[in-house]
Amino acid sequence: MTDVVDIVGLTKRYGELTAVEDVSFTVRSGRVVGLLGRNGAGKTTTLRMLLGLARPTSGRATVFGHPYAQLTRAAHRVGVSIDGIGPTGAGSAQTDLRIWAKTLGLSRTRVDEVLEQVGLAADGHRKLRDYSQGMRQRHALATALLADPELLILDEPANGLDPDGIRWLRELLRSLADEGRTVLVSSHILAEVEQMADDIVILQKTLRYSGTVADLTQNGGVSLESRFFDLVGPAVKENAHA
């Protein structure tokens, strides 16, 4: 298996504050990788640096062997849903998706397909401001799926989903991985990640773990939650910036 994502010595500082420090890990092709960490642990910052939305203070991050900005047809190969990236404000979900589809040079039928895929086919005409949090998550996922990408990068996609939605998301991500796609998904919901992920990366500003779920949990002998808290240590009050 080849490395789809390669992060080496990644550090991000905002003045005196260090959001991410010397983080290195890889994501292998065809795997579902759970990116775990507390609020402010640097998960989103790491993903933003990977995508070239934020400039690293030091280190490098590549997707399919290249920095995202230099990757040919990057938008068609990588689908993204990250906290803070919103819709265009174009009104309905369908209109918003059509704008992004146009940006990608895709047809309108692809919009209908992804709306169907995320379970919003009947609600595509509705205004996005009238969507529930769960529907917005599905909409963000639809945007990420538009180009039928090889790699999906999802930041807290289960936030706001109800139990049915969480199960649907797990099954969707697993099915995408079964098709040979790679999924890098950050989450707070440890039990969910344990069920869907092949590999785990744990961040708490620095890298605490990168490897398989099986190794981390000793083939199920120890819970992911227990191992997570062992690795990140006790919660301390600190400035969160990630």
Partner: peptide, 12 residues
Amino acid sequence: NGAISRSVLLSG
């Protein structure tokens, strides 16, 4: 609304 990030990601 943060759409600028997606615009950058999708625009090449």
